[in-house]
Write a protein that binds this DNA or RNA. Structure first.
Lengths: 342, 342
DNA sequence: CTGAAAGCGCTTACAG
DNA sequence: CTGAAAGCGCTTACAG
């Protein structure tokens, strides 16, 4: 730290000061920090030395203003503490950083109103792209994002906007597989457990599951309620088991729900999994592989989603166009479901 | 959307254009969006109408440049997908937003090198404050943050920097309580389980636990290894139980480790908790209350930490000074530990 | 209460 | 390769 820096106290040093110390123009300083700019090795080194001495850091606010590119990517998300979303957030934020972006997180909740406020902030900071993981934006504000040249990427939202990139998971196929596996395991009285939230993803899993069962002349008991959490699953398990005809297999639309179901069924009703009752989940959260659960489930294609998202963020704004891409959620076979007839 | 907005395509509207449409000066537009600025109700309304019509959003990049306050708060964090950190991130991001801040997440890992890159970005975006949840910053870069007038808040880092706000948890008290409870439950052969990561927090819990035991003339077996995860706990449980003198009580420095220990001990060695072996954890993650575990543990004071952090972020830069604050982690009594002698 | 003007810290044609 | 100048989109004294 130079004397000068110490005297300045609580202030950032500017390119101007660096230029003075290095004995060059402001332009030269700028070029020294712009990859590919035409500058001689010698002046670049002089600038770098002066910058290091003064503790100079390019002001990205000003740079963004000139370049019309802030370098910021916004993530609109709710329920960050949830296993699946926190994993997605982890992957996404790391990958975006590696691509040179700064990631801003907007903890928005699902309420459309909050999502709108989040998108507004996205516009305020001139984000290069915004990625919506939860909630559904108003059409009007979404359009403003697009018209401002912002890339808009919706993950598992199932709403279609023009010029928007949609990324989703093949819920239909997974749900059909779940139905098939339950039949193949010789289970006779399937049930579906979901939360009362009804996001597009959860509803798709439910509907395709019930439909697949119907094709095989089976009907399922449906339990829906509460938030998408362990406790709801526990309650579901408890209530289903006290029915006159309790189910012998459960497709829980989320692993968190599945864990709750398993615990209720085993601990309160002394049933064995998978013999008395089979359970299958969705997400493949860490806990699904814990030996207390060892849950058969479908794995969220987090890596594929992340890689594709980064590609979309990096595309030139001229190339922006509506697209939608679906990734498969592969089955993870574990022990919570009987494989064949008993 | 006005015709004009449609024609502009992929460009943000500026205060200039709003001023023209509203028939006022640029200054008036600025005042309309500055709480407390002196402006008549009438012109404010005219401006607001014009802004809405054009889809205007104040450019926070430019505003930050003038105000010398970006409104951005950075969170430097690793292992976002982990239950405790994702919860802290959830609380912190929400509270900071409610305080009017934009939160930037820097997924840094623990490596000092990465932390340095993260802090550099923090400076690039002229963040008002940066909060370090993981890893330890170099002194030099930390000083640059402070000298630039940035507030620097370290949570559970235990390193002391001048002018830095330190927030930590009373690990000593919790660890002593753990030792005391194990003795009171009549356990004779305690063990300590930790990861091989050795963060200041984990080490503090370990050292104070061992120290408290030593005061009571007890020694503990120590198992340390792997990342701070379920699998490490499972391995610890497995290896400890195959010892010639296996422990009858375990203080796992983290709930994730504790869950792993419990599963290994019960499923692979058919031991009962808490009768054959008592387990106590730390963090009170969601899974600790799941009925498969029902883990006695200490609750991370996430709300208190969050509230205090926001207060520190909001303090005037003139008031910045070193401080450190410790919050207690209250015991959550559940069933994984015997309460009294058998 | 209001507008003209200066300035925040950068980048980028434009000449040389 | 280099510098002087214009300009990005705002805010804030300064007069009126």
């Amino acid at each position: 730290m130079s004397e000068a820096a110490n005297r300045r106290q609580a202030t950032f040093v500017s390119a101007e000061e660096v230029a003075r110390l290095a004995g060059v123009s402001r332009s030269a300083v700028s070029r020294a920090f712009t990859p590919g700019a035409s500058i001689s090795v010698e002046t670049r080194q002089r600038v770098e030395a002066a910058a290091a001495q003064l503790g100079y850091h390019v002001n990205h606010l000003a740079r963004g203003l000139m370049r019309h590119e802030s370098g910021i990517v916004c993530l609109v998300v709710a329920d960050i503490h949830t296993p699946y979303l926190s994993r997605l957030l982890d992957y996404l934020s790391r990958a975006l950083q590696e691509a040179g972006k700064a990631v801003m997180v907007l903890n928005a909740g699902r309420a459309t109103k909050n999502v709108e406020a989040a998108l507004r902030q996205t516009l305020n900071y001139r984000a290069d792209a915004t990625i919506v993981l939860s909630g559904t934006p108003y059409r009007s504000i979404a359009r403003q994002c697009l018209e401002s040249g912002q890339r808009l990427i919706l993950i598992n939202r199932d709403d279609h906007f023009e010029q928007t990139v949609g990324i989703s998971v093949d819920h239909a196929k997974a749900a059909q597989t779940a139905a098939m596996l339950i039949r193949r395991g010789g289970y006779r009285r399937p049930a579906l457990v979901s939360s009362g939230i009804g996001t597009p993803s959860l509803n798709a899993r439910r509907d395709h599951f019930l439909e697949a069962l119907r094709m095989a002349d089976l009907t399922a008991q449906v339990w829906e309620g509460g938030p998408t959490a362990y406790q709801s699953g526990f309650q579901a398990g408890t209530e289903l088991m006290t029915l006159p005809e309790p189910p012998d297999a459960v497709f829980a639309v989320t692993d968190l729900l599945a864990c709750g179901v398993m615990d209720a069924v085993r601990q309160r009703f002394n049933k064995r999994v998978p013999d008395d009752i089979g359970v299958i989940g969705f997400d493949d959260i860490d806990q699904a592989s814990w030996s207390s659960y060892d849950l058969t489930t479908f794995s969220q294609p987090v890596e594929a989603i992340t890689a594709y998202t980064v590609r979309m963020v990096e595309q030139k704004s001229a190339e922006i166009q509506a697209s939608s891409r679906t990734f498969e959620a592969p089955l993870i076979w574990r022990s919570s479901l009987r494989a064949t007839l008993p």
